[in-house]
Amino acid sequence: MRLGPFTPRDHVVITTLGLEFAVAVGLCTAGGFLADKKLGSTPWLSIGGVFVGFALGMYMVVKEAKRMERAEAEQKDDKKNGSI
C-alpha cells in the first residue's frame, strides 16, 4: 500500500484525526460519567461511554480515510482524462 503524496490540506486533516479520536473517547466517557452520577449506575455507563467513543473515533477515521481515497482516485481519473 502506497502512502502519499499528501497535500497540505491532507496533512492538516490527518493530524486532526488523532485529536478527533481522543475528543470522541473523552466526550463520550464524560457523558457516560455524568449519566452514571445521575442514575447511580457507576461505573457501567462510563465504561459504555469509552466503547461508544472508541467506535465513534474509529468511524470518523475510517470515513476520512475513505474520503481521501476517493478524492485521490478522482484526481487520478482527472489526470488520465486530461492526458488523453
Binding site: T16, L19, E20, V23, A24, L27, C28, L56, Y59, M60, K63
Partner: peptide, 17 residues
Amino acid sequence: PLEVISLIIRVCVLAIR
C-alpha cells in the same frame, strides 16, 4: 446520531486544538 456527534466533535476539536 454518530454523524451528528461527529459534527459536534469537529467543532470541539477546533476549540481544543
